[in-house]
């Protein structure tokens, strides 16, 4: 869907982005991860031509972005910024209606679409006439998201979208983000410096440093097959947490004992990650969890069995 081919960007004498290439599949969620100054934001902004590359090509659906009028290109690409970039002199409704206005939608259509998004993002209709400065940071960020989604663009670029939020708000918004149906059908490239966020939201991660991609792969790839010491040390601090997030029950399925007790309630899907499974032990207040991979494959496990499967899985990866 998106193809970045040997793209470089030079600011004066500094090479901010150095001949990087990657591809993003349709409906994939790719994270550009790295410390500040690694070139991730520059890379993102070259895709909608906020920054023009010094060399290399970028294709969206096979069309070179430089062959299109930048304004028209951008109207097809949703964009969410860290500081939300809402127009302070526009109400919430007017902010959301900016792109529809540029696309010359009629009023009814805009209103209907706005109402739909407000509901999906859990924002009351009474906020429509409020100004951005009357909203909380989390609400502002949701409006920013609504504004990017309103014309239902196939591609969404997000530049540290949750960077300015406190931890609690960010955790809540992460949950909503994952649950939002609008987002699951989009191709998303998101920039972040937050490793946890990358692991939580990304299908694939490109870890960048000094303008180059150090490693790209799934969260588990990065954790268990780090390309070099940089990758390893980058993930070191939150390693255990990340492992819980990176490993899904399906990954452990074969390592789990093939026992099946009568379930005491609903079974969980095996698509959940280990972290979620562990949280379920805490909240379900039962000794065992029932997990189903498909209709025929159902396993009931306790905490120790899960942990031992996890350890064996890790040993296998390390070997």
């Amino acid at each position: 869907m998106i193809k970045v081919d040997k793209v470089s960007k030079q600011f004066n004498k500094v090479k901010a982005v150095d001949a990087i290439s990657f591809e993003v599949q349709e409906q994939e969620n790719l994270i550009l991860l790295g410390t500040s100054g690694c070139g991730k934001t520059t890379t993102l902004k070259m895709i909608n031509r906020l920054i023009e590359p010094t060399s290399g090509n970028i294709f969206i659906n096979g069309k070179n972005v430089t062959s299109q009028q930048p304004e028209n290109l951008r109207r097809e690409i949703g964009y969410v910024l860290q500081n939300n970039g809402l127009f302070p002199h526009y109400t919430v409704a007017e902010n959301i209606a900016i792109v529809p206005q540029l696309l010359k939608w009629d009023k009814k259509k805009t209103e209907k679409r706005t109402a739909e998004l407000m509901e999906k993002l859990h924002l009351g209709a009474d906020y429509l006439n409020a100004y951005p400065n009357e909203l909380s940071g989390g609400q502002q960020q949701r409006i920013g998201l609504a504004r990017a989604l309103v014309s239902d663009p196939p591609v969404l670029l997000m530049d540290e979208p949750f960077g300015a939020l406190d931890n609690v708000t960010r955790a809540n918004i992460h949950k909503e983000f994952k649950a939002l149906d609008e987002l699951t059908r989009k191709t998303i490239i998101m920039v972040t410096h937050d490793v946890q966020e990358a692991f939580e939201l990304g299908n694939r991660i490109c870890l960048m440093d000094k303008g180059k991609i150090v490693q790209s792969g799934t969260p588990a790839d990065l954790l268990f097959n780090p390309a070099n010491e940089f990758v390893e040390s980058f993930l070191k601090d939150q390693r255990l947490h990340l492992e819980f997030k990176a490993i899904k029950i399906t990954d452990l399925w074969d390592l789990l004992p093939d026992k099946q007790k009568q379930s005491n309630g609903n079974s969980l899907s095996a698509d959940i990650d280990l972290w979620t499974a562990l949280e379920n032990f805490r909240y379900a207040k039962s000794e065992t969890l029932t997990i189903s991979k498909s209709e025929n494959e159902i396993k009931t496990i306790d905490f120790e069995q899960l942990m031992s499967a996890f350890n064996r899985y890790k040993n296998k990866q390390g070997a």
């Binding site: 951008r74 964009y79 540029l102 920013g144």
Partner: peptide, 15 residues
């Protein structure tokens, strides 16, 4: 004018 507001305007396709 806040740079992020201008950037948002550009990124949404305003000329």
């Amino acid at each position: 004018v806040d740079a992020s507001v201008k950037e948002a305007a550009t990124a949404m396709g305003m000329n």
